[in-house]
Computed example of a mutant assay.
Amino acid sequence: MDSETVTSERLEKLQAEFGHLDGKDLMDAMIHKAFPGKIAMVSSFGSEAVVLLHMLSEVNPTVPVLFLNTGKLFGETLRYRDRLQDKLGLTDIRSLGPDPRVLDVQDPKGDLWARDADGCCHVRKVLPLAHGLEHFEASFTGRKKFQTGARSQMATIEQEAAADGTPGRFKINPLANWDLDDLKTYIEDHKLPRHPLVKDGYLSIGCMPCTDRVKEGGDYRSGRWAGLDKDECGIHVPGLVDGDGI
């Protein structure tokens, strides 16, 4: 898995009671039974984000949506976020950005991405998300098993290890078992708008400097950090999203 997980009595109970669910059914159970008032959704508003966001709008549109505005996103992504908020009626989208004081020290010229991609992700994604999740016990992610080898074994309900190795925040993956055809069918059946860059060959969309079009026959995520030995931004690495380094 792409993040170290732990086992706890509570995790075992959640998996026993709700582990057979996915999609909207799992989301409903987590919001209204397992973590009422203590769960948020983390969304990039990328190429497939509309599926999870649409489910949330039908289950409970007041659940907070944490959006990582790194300062390096495509303008199309920001406009897509605004469009989906209006269309889906999501009432609490929280934009999380990097601390200007940290940027002054770590990335004063805004070119850290070119010198140290992991460091850039840490400053612009990992640390802001850590702050945004401080008061939540769990979060929804849009991760799927097919996306990377590291994700291929993940469960729909996980518990992360905190920085000290003890059981930490829960991570809920309603789409873990979905594939690209499932996502496409859902989007078409519900007549949902796609991210405008998808039709231009961007299959997995992150920050502008580190996202390329996928060449014909290329892997689904080959446009992310192309040429680097990197396929994760770091927000699913154990400990970091629990405040390490802040």
Rank of each mutant, 00 (worst) to 15 (best):
S3Q: 07
V51E: 07
K38E: 13
D164V: 03
G149K: 02
I187V: 15
F35P: 02
H135C: 08
A150I: 01
V241W: 04
T148E: 01
P209N: 07
D22F: 07
F35V: 09
A40C: 13
L73A: 05
L129D: 00
E9I: 10
D118T: 09
H190Y: 15
P196A: 04
E160Q: 15
L228E: 15
L127S: 02
L203A: 09
T5I: 11
S152K: 05
I31R: 12
D244S: 12
D182I: 00
T77M: 07
C233Y: 00
S95Y: 03
L96E: 06
L183M: 11
G132M: 06
R143F: 03
Q15W: 08
T91M: 04
E76P: 01
D200R: 15
G165K: 13
P98R: 02
A138T: 11
A16S: 15
R143A: 10
T148G: 00
D219Y: 07
T70G: 05
G201I: 05
L53W: 09
Q153K: 13
P193R: 12
A155F: 07
L192E: 10
C207V: 05
M30I: 15
L240M: 11
K38H: 14
V123I: 10
V237F: 11
H190F: 14
H236R: 00
T77S: 11
R143Q: 14
H54Q: 09
N177Q: 10
S44W: 01
C121A: 05
K144I: 00
E232M: 04
A49M: 02
M154Y: 01
D99K: 07
F74V: 00
D99R: 09
G168R: 10
E160W: 09
Y220D: 10
L112Q: 07
V198E: 11
E160Y: 12
K145P: 00
R151S: 04
A49F: 01
I246S: 12
A34Q: 06
S139N: 14
D244G: 03
P238C: 04
D229G: 05
E9D: 15
C207P: 02
A29G: 08
